[in-house]
Design a protein around this nucleic acid. Structure first.
Lengths: 219, 219
DNA sequence: CAAAGAACATGAGCGTTGCTCACGTGCCTG
DNA sequence: CAGGCACGTGAGCAACGCTCATGTTCTTTG
């Protein structure tokens, strides 16, 4: 537990890093099989034996790399979080940078919404969580923390550009509320029927804009 | 599935309604034991045998009344939902009726926040859910539906009183967004450390007010 | 290039959990 | 008080997550 000169840190939920090409391929197949089963049948009713069977791998091999069932879940969730962060960062640093506040928010909301819909595994994982939820929530928290940091910076810049004063603390708080609220509404939108789903995406933008305008004005 | 002349509807998650006084007392003790264990150790790691043991009842008796572990969870969740609904309805029909919009919202937010904090079992249940989550979500959905209906009515009345026009559809949509968003923020507030928790309650009010002002003005 | 060791492969089966079922006891109506 | 219905009881079953002992393949080294 003390000496860890060889291991980089502890970011890997894997029990043993696959070094050979064949085993790396196996890990990929396990993750793919798990994602498919989680989406179609839910996390709770997907057995580890079923995952292994679908991946064409004996259970023993599955546990060679993943310490437990939750680790598979966590690995998938981590991947999703990183992908979303990168997509949003690209938008913020690219075409989004030139947009006015309202359009910037609408664009971000639309992008996040599309991400949820294009990756059905993301809602599926958080849809019916499981025993290991404490750690799963920690991962979601970590992903949110990145987004909050991003937003916090953006808000401070934009407030300054618009001549409003905004303390760093208030910036973080507002970013926190925005990330959590928009995430929640868009998650709902993704799991709802088309008419309501589309309306919710629009309302998410409206809500964010109204809140921001009020908070920036009150500074 | 067809003939149901004897059963009133199907609102009871109980397998068999306890008719004698002794068995009713047993059901109460099972629910109390389950709540305590869920709060202290989480839902996932609480076994049905442990619930029965703490309640001083053999497992057989537990399953005499509850069809499965999830039913205990659902029964508790249902009770919470009804209590919150009644508390909010009492406020809306009582002292809240005379308050202006801003104060009304702040009051409702404060009341909901207190409810979450006074009933630690509520967050605990939704904290680490389990296999039966589909049905649990359905119950949460039902509780939210009641709150949304309440809000929807309140919004239409208040909009008319303020001279703004608001369609019934828009009223429902706005109520939906408000209930979901405030619930989410206050749930976060209840599970967060004091400084952030208190701020989040305030922000929930700010957010709701800003959103409502914008939506009522845009009519 | 052979030998040694590390990484990987395999599946029978263990411990635990949610839950059943066959049988026994208490209560309550006619 | 006799019949029946509701309730009480706990050994044990099926299914699950996961282990472990043993065998195989790859990589490194003298």
């Amino acid at each position: 537990m003390a000496d860890a000169s060889a291991t980089p840190a502890e970011p890997s939920p894997l029990r043993r890093q696959p070094r050979q090409a064949r085993s790396q391929e196996r890990v990929r197949r396990i993750l793919a099989a798990a994602e498919e089963l989680f989406v179609s049948g839910g996390v709770g009713s997907t057995t580890t034996n079923a995952i292994a069977a679908k991946a064409g791998v004996p259970i023993g091999s599955l546990y060679q790399f993943f310490p437990d069932k939750g680790a598979i879940l966590r690995r998938l969730a981590q991947g999703y979080g990183e992908q979303l962060h990168e997509a949003l960062a690209a938008f913020a640093g690219g075409e989004g940078a030139a947009l006015p506040l309202e359009a910037y928010i609408t664009g971000t909301v639309a992008l996040t919404d599309r991400f949820f819909r294009d990756h059905p595994g993301y809602p599926a994982i958080f849809m019916d969580v499981q025993a290991t939820t404490a750690e799963l929530l920690a991962i979601e928290e970590e992903a949110d923390a990145r987004l909050i940091a991003d937003w916090s910076g953006t808000l401070l810049e934009r407030a300054a550009a618009e001549g409003a004063t905004l303390s760093a603390e208030d910036g973080r708080l507002i970013a926190y509320v925005l990330v959590k609220t928009i995430g929640n509404l868009l998650w709902l939108a993704a799991t709802q029927e088309p008419p309501l789903g589309t309306q919710l995406v629009r309302e998410a933008s409206e809500l964010a804009i109204a809140y921001l305008r009020r908070r920036l004005a009150a500074a």
